[in-house]
């Protein structure tokens, strides 16, 4: 299964970057989301995947015993998911704002190089 997830991570990264290279702002946003998912999956995969053993201590026990999923990447990803929501909403609003100002989806119309001497 690891190999399938590996391919998935690769595909998410590749498509994310591909979409970020488009001229359309909406596509840029889609690329951002795909890339975020890819990063989450990468962390998840590298933490090691375990089927059906959540990191929750049984009712009778005091410590986790036996095989269990790694809790550290999970808490990292949980944080990342919530933060990425904040990022996405901010990006969407920014995009909307820009669109309201310049009436276009084309990133080329935003182009003002720093130096124009």
């Amino acid at each position: 299964m690891e190999l399938l997830l590996l391919i998935l991570v690769g595909v998410l990264y590749a498509t994310g970057i591909f979409m970020m290279l488009r001229r359309s702002m909406v596509k840029l946003l889609i690329g951002l989301i795909l890339l975020g998912n890819g990063a989450n999956m990468l962390i998840f995969l590298l933490g090691g995947i375990t089927r059906g053993k959540p990191p929750i201590i049984g009712d009778a026990d005091k410590v986790l015993t036996g095989i269990y999923a790694d809790p550290v990447p999970q808490s990292l990803i949980l944080t990342a998911i919530v933060i990425s929501f904040g990022l996405q909403s901010f990006a969407i609003v920014l995009l909307k704002r820009v669109h309201a100002l310049i009436q276009t989806d084309d990133l080329n119309d935003l182009n003002t190089p720093d130096t124009s001497i």
Partner: peptide, 15 residues
């Protein structure tokens, strides 16, 4: 608070 602020603000404003 964060989620509702974001969603309500966005759905309210018509630009």
């Amino acid at each position: 608070g964060v989620t509702l602020t974001i969603l309500f603000t966005i759905s309210e404003s018509i630009l």
